[in-house]
Computed example of a mutant assay.
Amino acid sequence: MTGTLADKRALVTGASKGLGRDICRALLADGWQVVGVARPSLELKALQAELGPSFTAWEMDVTGDDLLMAIADADPFDLLVNNAGGNQPEPFVDVADETLDLLITLNVRAPFRIARSVARAMPRGGTIIHMTSQMGHVGSPRRTVYCMTKHAIEGLSKAMAVELAPAGIRVNCIAPTFVRTPMTEGMLADTQFAAFVDRMIPMGQLATAEQIAAAVVYLASPAAAMITGHSLVIDGGWTAQ
Rank of each mutant, 00 (worst) to 15 (best):
D97M: 15
A159R: 11
R199P: 02
M131F: 08
A72Q: 14
A167C: 11
R142Y: 15
D235P: 14
G125A: 07
N172S: 10
L42S: 10
A215F: 02
D7K: 14
A74Y: 13
D198A: 13
A240W: 08
I23L: 03
N87K: 03
N82V: 03
P222Q: 12
W58R: 02
A152R: 08
E59M: 00
I129Y: 03
D198H: 15
M1R: 09
I169E: 12
N172K: 10
G20A: 04
I23N: 03
D78L: 00
T56M: 10
R143Q: 10
G186K: 12
P40H: 00
G52N: 07
Q241L: 09
N87C: 10
T228D: 04
G155D: 12
H230T: 11
P166C: 06
G20F: 01
S221M: 02
V95K: 07
T184L: 01
S16D: 06
P76A: 07
I23M: 08
G125T: 04
K158A: 07
L68H: 01
P111I: 00
D61P: 05
V216W: 03
N82C: 01
M160G: 02
A225V: 07
K17L: 07
H230A: 09
N172T: 08
A110K: 00
G20D: 04
D30T: 01
P166N: 06
V34I: 03
V171E: 12
K45C: 04
S133C: 10
A223R: 13
A194I: 01
Q48F: 01
G86S: 11
M160D: 12
